[in-house]
Write a protein that binds this DNA or RNA. Structure first.
Length: 307
DNA sequence: AACCAGGACACAA
DNA sequence: TTGTGTCATGGT
């Protein structure tokens, strides 16, 4: 499907949602899209399950998503006919089969893909992604979700919600976080990560780094620039490149992916970090980041890999 | 009750 | 280059 057909087919689809109170809804035709796995796979932290679907905030909009047969049903609280922002966020135009075809043909990769059909990568807002992952270090996903929720409740602007829903807030702006004190941030249970988030927000607010420009640069340059921010090392920089800046070859290696790589590709062999880095850079191809997400999921759901 | 979590960093060897 | 301690907090 082309970008222009997306625009036209989704821009006229708005109807009223009497039953749910949602003001606006549409349908995205998609194939091989595992919504639950995608929204709960640790790349984003603001979605929570509701009856038969998921509720979350994208930018400054409340959204409810539901899986249909070869489709995703979407509802928002605010009227408006243009759905490109959500099509972009969900990456509904991404042909997953084309991505999977670039993966190496080895047994570990086959097993990881088979374990989670339809797992996708989203295209997130760079600041929300960066800030969330600054808070993520040595935290479990449920804790990251709680930290991000507290940040939004305390510093985010309220967003329009459908009747019957609880209050919802946008992710706080760079300026609002930059203005917050370290103590206020610590109160969101982020511990030693608070000064990093605070200082990173100030650098961005001061214009030292332009997050929106990262996508226009080379992956190497964007990565180096991200790593100038306090609390941002190779792993978190790669997360932002992959989840927000559109660099599908970025390959964040966290404890789970490291376990999976060692266990699946280097059984009973000592592998130095450098060697592992060289392997991932050479082995997984132009969509290595997608491969990484499958390995991450695979490692987390298969107890044999947990060790 | 220990152990660990989508790490980064300074520092030693 | 690779290893180690430290940082806060809470889940399992």
């Amino acid at each position: 499907m082309t970008a222009s057909s997306i625009k036209s087919s989704f821009s006229n689809a708005a109807t009223s949602g009497e039953a749910t109170g949602a003001a606006c809804r549409t349908v995205f035709p998609v194939r091989d899209y595992n919504l639950a796995a995608t929204l709960a796979s640790g790349q984003t932290f603001r979605w929570r399950p509701c009856e038969g679907g998921w509720e979350g905030i994208v930018g400054s909009r409340w959204v409810r998503l539901r899986s249909g047969a070869d489709s995703i049903l979407a509802e928002t609280a605010a009227p408006g006919g243009d759905w490109r922002w959500l099509a972009e966020y969900l990456q509904v135009e991404q042909d997953l089969a084309q991505v999977l075809a670039t993966f190496p043909e080895d047994e570990p990769m086959r097993a990881a893909v088979a374990a989670c059909r339809g797992l996708r990568l989203l295209r997130q807002d760079p600041w929300e992604c960066l800030a969330s992952f600054i808070c993520s270090s040595t935290k479990q996903i449920v804790q990251i979700q709680q930290i991000v929720a507290l940040l939004c409740e305390r510093f985010g602007e309220p967003v329009r919600i459908p009747r019957g829903s609880g209050a919802a807030f946008a992710f706080p702006s760079v300026e609002r976080i930059a203005a917050a004190g370290e103590a206020e941030l610590r109160a969101c249970k982020m511990g030693f990560r608070a000064p990093n988030l605070c200082a990173a927000a100030r650098k961005i607010a001061d214009g030292e780094i332009d997050l929106r420009r990262l996508a226009t640069r080379s992956a190497e340059a964007a990565r180096a620039e991200l790593m100038l921010l306090p609390g941002v090392g190779a792993k978190i920089a790669d997360c932002v490149l992959l989840f927000a800046c559109g660099f599908p070859a970025a390959f964040p290696v966290d404890v789970w992916v490291r376990k999976a790589l060692r266990r699946l590709y280097f059984p009973r062999r000592q592998v130095t970090p450098k060697r592992l880095q060289e392997f991932t850079a050479a082995h997984f191809g132009p969509y290595a980041g997608y491969a990484q997400q499958y390995l991450f999921h695979y490692a987390r759901v298969h107890a044999k890999l947990k060790k």
